[in-house]
């Protein structure tokens, strides 16, 4: 053993000891580094998004409270979700007019069209044309033929709604007498679906009741008023009126009130609390039923945005600020209908 090797051994030991010592110089000595958990997917996609989506929403008609409130909800959602919403519809509830609006939307190169259809068939060509231009199409409020759209955002289950509407009328009428239905456009598929279930429920449970007429208002308040007067004139034994579009019940209640038949002719139907509030409180209308159109507008925008991001709705999905939804493949159902009575109508603000 020479001196040199001994020195080397000593140096090795020194190095060894100093290496151990050096490690303790830093207070923290990282052993293992783990990737942080990914932030939730939606926010990361938002970060990558170069520009917000543009969603075109077309109601059946503009200028009536129901669709105005829908617009409020849609705008709220647009703000929450950072998307652009173009809300535009025909002045009258007419398919031709609506097609023009849709064509205009296509020119504006929207990413997605959400339609409340005045006619299920006549809108199909223009919607197909939109699809060919890469615009995605959904429907809300009133559906088209299924081939024209990807999915339909429905407010309520039509069977539930139709049966419920007749039940409320039967209950207020005492299950007997003549009644009439004031619908919007005769071509609107959702209205016709409800009417189907109204008639089914009546023939099934209430043989003492008789449907005498189905009158169209074309979602025009003025026209609705006329229609209501006519109904009362034509059918003196009329005991009840169901309005299944939002302009119907206020017009009917107005006419009933004016003709002094308050309480004799029962008025129920789909309308907004704000429109019905005074009639419910003075007894010229017995019950209004509806969903929250604001919520519908909001939900439509949420569903549209999810779809543009490639996410189909899921049955039971919890939508922020909306609640849980139902989905059966191509129809989204927003929730249960709300009933507005003299007692609770003041709670609602639409």
């Amino acid at each position: 053993m020479t001196r040199k090797t001994m020195t080397m051994v000593l140096m090795f030991l020194l190095f060894f000891v100093s290496a151990c010592y050096n490690q303790k110089q830093d207070r923290y000595d990282v052993i293992y580094r783990m990737e942080p958990v990914k932030a939730s997917s939606s926010s990361s996609i938002e970060d990558k998004e170069p520009r917000p989506f543009t969603i075109g929403i077309v109601p059946k008609v503009t200028g009536i409270p129901y669709f105005n409130v829908v617009e409020d909800g849609a705008v709220e959602a647009a703000k929450d979700l950072n998307v652009n919403v173009i809300y535009d519809g025909p002045l009258i509830a007419d398919a031709e007019q609506q097609i023009k609006v849709i064509e205009d939307m296509i020119k504006r190169k929207v990413d997605l069209l959400a339609i409340s259809a005045n006619d299920p068939k006549r809108l199909v060509p223009v919607l197909t044309q939109a699809k060919e231009q890469g615009i995605r199409v959904i429907t809300w409020d009133a559906d088209t033929l299924p081939e024209a759209r990807e999915l339909f955002v429905n407010m309520v289950d039509p069977e539930t709604l139709g049966r419920h509407l007749l039940d409320t009328l039967a209950w207020t009428m005492g299950e007997e007498g003549e009644y009439a239905i004031m619908t919007g456009a005769l071509s609107a598929s959702n209205l016709n679906e409800w009417i189907k279930w109204i008639r089914y429920q009546q023939t099934h449970y209430y043989p003492g009741m008789e449907l005498v007429e189905i009158a169209a208002t074309d979602d025009n308040p003025q026209q609705a008023y006329e229609v209501a007067r006519e109904l009362l004139n034509k059918h003196p034994d009329l005991k009840g009126i169901i309005g299944n579009s939002s302009v119907g019940p206020p017009a009917a209640a107005q006419v009933v009130s004016e003709t002094g038949k308050k309480g004799d002719i029962k008025v129920v139907g789909l309308s907004t609390p704000n429109l019905m509030k005074s009639y419910l409180q003075d007894g010229s209308a017995q019950m209004a039923t509806l969903w929250s159109p604001k919520k519908l507008g909001y939900l439509t925008v949420v569903i549209a945005k999810n779809l543009l991001e490639g996410n189909l709705p899921v049955h039971g999905q919890e939508i922020e600020n909306v609640g849980s939804i139902r989905f059966n493949g191509d129809v989204v159902i927003m929730g249960e209908p709300l009933d507005f009575t003299r007692e609770n109508v003041s709670q609602y603000d639409f």
């Binding site: 923290y28 000595d29 990282v30 052993i31 580094r33």
Partner: peptide, 9 residues
Amino acid sequence: IWNGSFRES
């Protein structure tokens, strides 16, 4: 670090 392990001397 906020994800991982380290020795504290």
